[in-house]
Write a protein that binds this DNA or RNA. Sequence first.
RNA 1: GGGGACGUAGCUCAGUUGGUUAGAGCGCUGCCCUGUCACGGCAGAGGUCGCGGGUUCGAGCCCCGUCGUCCCCGCCA
Length: 623
Amino acid sequence: MTLDFLGTLERTHRCGELRAANAGEPVVVMGWVNRRRDHGDLIFLDVRDRTGIVQVVLDKQLSPEAHARAEAARPEFVVAATGTVRRRAAGLENPKMETGDIEVAATELLLLNDAKTPPFSPAEDAIANEEVRLKYRFLDLRRTEMQRNFRLRHEVARAIRNSLSDAGFLEIETPFMTRSTPEGARDYLVPSRVHPGEFYALPQSPQIFKQILMISGFDRYFQIARCFRDEDLRADRQPEFTQIDLEMTFPQQDLIFKVVENFMTAAFKAAGIELEPPFVHMTYDEAIEKYGIDKPDMRLPAMVEFTQILTPELREALKIEPTLPVLGFIIPNARPESSTQSKTLMNEIRASLGETGLDWLDVSRLGKSETFKSLGEQITQELREGHAKFLGYDSGLPSPDGGSHLAVVITPKLGTPAKWNHDPQWIYKKVGALRLELAKKFADKHGLFTQTGTAADFKFCWITDFPMYEWDEEAKTWQAAHHPFTSPHEEDIRAGRLTSDKGAVRALAYDIVLNGTELGSGSIRIHRKDVQAEIFRSLGMDEEEQKARFGFFLDALDYGTPPHGGIALGLDRIVMILAGASSLREVIAFPKTAKAIDLMVDAPTPATEHQLRELSLKVAPRT
RNA sequence: GGGGACGUAGCUCAGUUGGUUAGAGCGCUGCCCUGUCACGGCAGAGGUCGCGGGUUCGAGCCCCGUCGUCCCCGCCA
């Protein structure tokens, strides 16, 4: 078989855009052979490009030569078909195809390129294993689903760019080769040839640069910025990722929320989803008490607290710790169908609680004893009310379906510690984690994670008033919970809590959360040098260390820094959730594996002797 | 750093208690077919059971080690 040259032939239409209205038009379409159906003297080729698939018909009677070319064509060959758009005869339409009312009757077919038999077919829905997909990423990306994901990503990014530009933000680039920024992650380092033994760091975020842009008077900045962090991966964490990074001068927290809500509404609109801002607001403490986590998944009912209901007498009778919180939650429609299933589940829950001192309270058994009967009813009632509220009914009204829900109540046994690792909220967090674990396990039953294609699929919330400091048990010191340029609440500064009561200091820091995923994080920054110095002092950082790490930035702070603040949102995560994908790899064109390897290009690789010599580097074997 | 799941044909997977020549569907190759669209029919090719070692008369199956992919904890403020 010989291949054809393109010559001067030009494409007139994309495959997916031809419709009945084009009937009778002469056209040239080009693309990949998606499937070939050979009926002898009649051959159908489904030709695919980014826009879709169109059926090209090769009739031996119409053009023996074109028909002969089609006989040699195979899946993934690149072809150019010249012919006429023809309405399909009655009964021959394919309603499953966008272009199913028509076909291209070809008079000429060029085989522009051949293709090896691919290890998996881009035409198939069945997804090959990820290892193969990533190795042959160029084939994987041909799949309709991947093409759709990247189109979505483009539309979302464009909508955000437009929204921020319209709001007066300037897009300004910051360097990739820089020095360590004050985020907490490990840096990727780039050795300098010119300065032997010295390294640039790839940015974990443009944090310092955007603050300097505010000092420089740019007023409003944004960037769709690549960030790098050398940490272990997860389904929602890649070593390089893209953030929508922004910063503004003279903002109140609410103004930043408004800006973000505006561009998120625009982004979701581009994806066909009409959001209704403002998003729900919650303080960090509320989030912990209601959801046991700082990134609540509000697609599920919140936790219910029974601490008050359990009187000292009841606690004594049930051998429950006298003061600690008692928490419960329901997983809708997940009630075990038999007592055997119930027992298995109880054992699983006990195993997952481990040696914490927490225990599952069997609510159904409470009803069997006169002493605890009314307690059992009260608990059930409160859980139901919580569920009714979640469904949008006023409290007091019964939820529409009766008792098909799985009710879990967790109690602290006598001797359960009140604090773990200095964390008085640990019980909330533990029960919150159990809530998520069970919600994941019973996802098929409650169906609350299934997307319906409406705004109801997307539960946003703002989490505010994060703690400023957290206790580091190993180092026995207070650490900044965020980067050290985050401003505390002004009243906490005035009240002197920075020195007297670090645990109570709230930061002007906030997260935006969607369906239990942290989308973004930001803060109002410190703009006064004296406050900054106090924060550093409270962290036990002496002047020498301050200077070594942030000297240039502290200099800039000296020259008239305005109040400013901002936020950064993970673009990849936004697109992932919108696409209904469960991994960032579905929305990043060339992602890395869990071990941070690129299977297609096979990176990283060892450096050559020559490269190492030029960089004055020597590789020490790992001990 | 720790825990878990998986690894058999190009792909998706089955493979019983350790027992003859390791199977299926899809894909691939050849031939036939003018209305298919996941076309159909006939015939055929295709295997280092991830890799290494061990137990055994005998290992895809059991044991040890190792590599790879995925998920989770730690880590990522």
